[in-house]
Amino acid sequence: MTLTNQDELYQELILEHNKKPRNFKKLENPTHFAEGYNPLCGDHLTVALKVNDKNIIEDIAFEGSGCAISKASASLMTVNLKGKTVSEAETLFNQFHRLIIGELKSDSETNILGKLAIFSGIWHYPARVKCASLSWHTMNGALHKVKTVSTEK
């Protein structure tokens, strides 16, 4: 594989979201909540959502600790999901999952990923794919009432 420089993974937007994560807070009275673990590296985070009766994600927040990739991914996820319907969130989850394993090429396949396409290069780093996906799996778990999500299950 040819990679020109490290900025492919650690791009400005990712570093910025790592430094100042959005929606990094406790959400009072969430309708959906789950905890996510990556037992291989010790990353641990929680995702909480408020979904209204029109199935729209009114609010979403996360807490926890992890590497820059997992933190930035969680932060960007919350920004992208706020205001979206649950079904749109599921579509995004699927597209994001396919993106980070190198299956979805964001420049040639129609998608609604927007800024999330920044993670398109991560499949070059197999050991780091789980860092980017932990928050998404946790969010998906929360929506489907799964309380604890592990990357190793």
């Binding site: 420089n5 992890g66 990739i69």
Partner: peptide, 29 residues
């Protein structure tokens, strides 16, 4: 300010192989 996994990936780009994680000693962490 740098999580060990990010550090591990970045030094790997310079050809340096180090281990990052709990090293199978979680109680030490």
């Amino acid at each position: 300010d740098i999580h060990p996994h990010d550090l591990g990936t970045l030094v790997d780009r310079e050809g340096v192989a180090i281990r990052t994680g709990h090293h199978c000693t979680m109680p030490v962490m």
